[in-house]
Amino acid sequence: SHCAGCKEEIKHGQSLLALDKQWHVSCFKCQTCSVILTGEYISKDGVPYCESDYHAQF
């Protein structure tokens, strides 16, 4: 499978399933500020955001 963030193949190591896609753990980050999302996040149109950036933009 391929990472939804960087589009590279996910080989051995940690990956996560979010928004119905596979991601490298380090690629699942806020679209705006690039903080790596480990806990709470909000998505809009399949794109992840941290809570503060989501509320600031939408």
Rank of each mutant, 00 (worst) to 15 (best):
Q22F: 09
L17I: 09
Y49G: 02
H12S: 14
E9R: 11
C30W: 00
V47I: 13
V35D: 10
H24N: 01
I42K: 15
Q31P: 15
E40A: 14
Q31N: 06
K7A: 13
C6K: 02
Q31R: 09
H12R: 10
Y54F: 06
D20Q: 11
K29Q: 12
E8I: 09
W23Q: 01
Q31C: 06
H55S: 07
Y54G: 11
C6T: 01
S43T: 09
S52T: 09
Q22Y: 15
Q57A: 15
I42T: 13
V25L: 11
E40H: 11
S43H: 05
D53F: 02
C6Q: 02
C3A: 00
C30G: 01
C50H: 02
H24E: 03
E8W: 05
G46W: 01
Q31L: 04
S34G: 13
Q14W: 00
T38K: 13
Q14T: 10
C50F: 02
L17V: 12
V35T: 12
T38G: 10
K7H: 10
S26Y: 11
E51K: 07
D45C: 07
E40N: 06
T38D: 11
C50I: 00
I42R: 14
D20K: 10
D20H: 13
H2M: 11
S52F: 10
S34C: 14
D45I: 04
Y49I: 05
E9V: 08
H2C: 03
T32D: 15
Q31I: 09
V47T: 08
D53Y: 02
I42A: 13
K7W: 07
H55M: 13
K7P: 07
S15H: 08
Q22D: 12
S34M: 14
K7D: 10
I42E: 15
H2L: 11
C6M: 02
L19P: 03
Q57H: 15
S43G: 12
E8S: 11
C33E: 03
C27I: 00
F28Q: 00
L17Y: 05
Q57T: 07
K44P: 03
E51G: 09
S34Q: 09
Y41R: 04
G13H: 10
H12I: 07
D20Y: 04
E9G: 11
L16R: 15
L19K: 08
D45H: 08
K7Y: 13
L16Y: 13
C6H: 01
D45R: 07
V25A: 13
Y49H: 09
L17F: 10
S15M: 11
Y54M: 04
F58P: 04
V25S: 14
A18S: 09
V35I: 14
S15W: 06
I36M: 09
C6I: 01
V47C: 08
K11N: 06
T32C: 14
T38L: 05
L19N: 07
C50Q: 01
Y41F: 04
S34R: 15
V35S: 11
L17A: 14
D45N: 11
H24G: 01
Y54T: 07
H2D: 08
A56F: 15
E8Y: 09
Y41K: 03
K29I: 03
D20W: 03
G5F: 05
I42F: 12
F58N: 06
P48D: 01
V25E: 15
I36A: 09
P48R: 02
F28T: 03
L17M: 14
C3F: 01
E8R: 10
I36R: 14
K44V: 07
S52E: 13
I36L: 13
H24M: 00
I10Y: 02
P48Y: 06
T32K: 13
E9Y: 07
H12T: 12
D53Q: 04
L19F: 14
G39W: 03
I42M: 14
V47F: 13
Y41Q: 04
I10D: 04
Q57K: 05
G46S: 05
T38I: 11
Q14R: 09
S52H: 06
G39F: 04
A56I: 06
C3N: 01
Q57C: 08
A4D: 09
S52K: 11
D20R: 11
I36Q: 12
K29N: 07
D53I: 00
L37E: 01
K44E: 10
G46V: 02
L17S: 12
Q14A: 13
T38F: 07
L37R: 03
D20V: 03
D53P: 02
G13C: 06
D20I: 02
C50K: 03
C50T: 01
I10N: 02
H24I: 00
Q22W: 10
I36C: 15
S26P: 14
Q14G: 08
V47P: 03
C50W: 00
H2Y: 11
C27A: 02
Q22S: 13
K44S: 11
T38V: 10
P48H: 05
Q31T: 08
S1W: 11
E40L: 04
S26N: 11
H55W: 11
H12C: 06
A4T: 15
Q57L: 11
